[in-house]
């Protein structure tokens, strides 16, 4: 085994939570090389101030996939992503308490008055989360037909793709701007530190040590 493969790869998601994640990493003493912040850079893998840790920046759903397959040993992923995939190979030992939002069902404002969610038997849903949506509705005895979209769910009701969506809600501003109203909350979402199961077992001191380090930071922030 080459020395390079002993490195711990940490996958972080692009997008809205990245800034908060970088703050937590900085508190743990992990500062990515300058190219990480350079929007012109085509680089995908970055060294950090800690020689043993490299960062990769991928889509939030791909963080779970990289960690589940052991291509990355650690990562940061929202529990929305973890619930959607439900990989047995991922441990989520730590809630970082950042990226706070929730998953909810929403529908057009003009529909709400005449709609009683308790009477649904079949719903059609546009969502990035078909598994979570199906499970959520099945638990309520409602059959859900899911249309998988990768973004801009809020457009679906106004264009007649389907009437309801399941999506992440942070402030509710996007829903409002598109004439949608939240009708049901599915789950609270925060970012979790995730680790690959085999990596935690085969590198217990290294990976376990970092989990503990992040735990101390989270405890410190809460105190």
């Amino acid at each position: 085994m080459s020395a390079g493969s002993e490195k711990i790869i940490m996958a972080v998601p692009k997008g809205r939570v990245l800034g908060e994640i970088l703050e937590v990493l900085r508190a743990a003493g992990i500062v990515p090389e300058p190219a990480f912040e350079d929007s012109q850079s085509r680089q995908l893998r970055f060294t950090t101030s800690v020689a043993a840790i490299d960062l990769i920046r991928v889509r939030s759903f791909d963080v779970a996939t990289f960690v589940a397959f052991g291509a990355a040993q650690m990562g940061v992923a929202g529990n929305d992503v973890l619930m959607e995939f439900d990989y047995a190979e991922i441990y989520a030992p730590l809630d970082l308490g950042i990226g706070v939002c929730h998953l909810a069902v929403a529908e057009p404002a003009e529909m709400v008055a005449g709609d009683d969610p308790a009477r649904w038997s079949h719903v059609r849903i546009a969502t990035k989360y078909p598994n979570i949506s199906r499970r959520h509705f099945a638990a309520r005895g409602v059959q859900a037909e899911c249309i998988k979209l990768n973004g801009a769910m809020e457009l679906a009701p106004s264009l007649g793709l389907c009437r309801r969506i399941v999506d992440l809600v942070q402030t509710g501003a996007t829903l409002k701007a598109n004439g949608l109203v939240e009708v049901e909350k599915i789950a609270d979402v925060t970012s979790r530190l995730v680790v690959n199961r085999a990596a935690l077992k085969t590198l217990p001191r290294e990976v376990g040590g970092w989990v503990q380090r992040f735990q101390e930071i989270v405890n410190g922030a809460a105190a």
Binding site: M1, S5, F69, E89, A198, K201, L203
Partner: peptide, 11 residues
């Protein structure tokens, strides 16, 4: 018990 090997996916 479960047996792993470093850098190998799965058990």
């Amino acid at each position: 018990f479960t047996i792993f090997s470093r850098g190998v996916r799965g058990e």
